[in-house]
């Protein structure tokens, strides 16, 4: 696979390490009521869709950036790739 790195262009997937569901960006508030249950969901429950999936890839043999890659798990088509820090910062705004 080739991953369209937002800064570096197409890079071979062998340079990356895969983590999985990008919902890991949404770490629950540790002091909110029901935090433990929220963390249980966060840590243990993942969607595993056949189709479009947002997932985390680490450019380990590259610029060491974490990417959010939107990928169709059936066709392996990659719809977009963004820097995770931008996604996270954007969500915070």
């Amino acid at each position: 696979m080739l991953i369209p790195h937002p800064l570096l262009g197409l890079r071979d997937a062998q340079e990356f390490t895969y983590l999985g569901d990008a919902s890991l960006l949404n770490r629950p508030d540790p002091v909110a009521p029901g935090a433990e249950a929220a963390f249980c969901d966060y840590v243990f429950l993942r969607d595993n869709p056949a189709g479009v999936h947002r997932e985390l890839w680490f450019h380990e043999q590259g610029d060491r950036s974490w990417l959010v890659v939107t990928r169709n798990t059936v066709t392996h088509e990659i719809l977009s790739a963004e820097l995770a820090s931008d996604v996270k910062a954007g969500a915070a705004q």
Partner: peptide
Amino acid sequence: NIDPKTLGPGCCTRTG
């Protein structure tokens, strides 16, 4: 696994 054509003088990259 880097295309030499994309790594001309003045370019750099990190790879495996």
